[in-house]
Amino acid sequence: MKLITYNFLTSKCIRGVKVGYPLKLNVVEKKVEQQNFNPEFVQRMLPRLEWSAIKSAADIVGCAEIPENMNVETSLHDTDFLQKLHHLLLEIEIVNGSLICPETGRVFPITNGIPNMLLNEDEV
């Protein structure tokens, strides 16, 4: 699972959960898979990102150069920043680990790169 996907995942479906976002990311195994850098694509993704989730994920996977705050307007033309964000969103593969609901502590395992977001019938 790449972090661009992580950006959109929630545990809101669990009965009683109010926000369910961001999920706490727990990484057991990760790897880097190179992708072609396309600045226009990263630019287009900026407004779709929840920066608090991206920033905390960056800290967890060890991308220290991602800033605390992000301003879409000023970030659009910062190629160096877009390149780093490209790496964070599209090149870091979480192979094994888990996602944890911030409200209930429910664990969603990530196995073989596949996050399992399925809930049991008694949870919805």
Partner: peptide, 8 residues
């Protein structure tokens, strides 16, 4: 490698 699979 430019893919993700999500079980849901």
């Amino acid at each position: 490698t430019n893919v993700d699979f999500v079980q849901c």
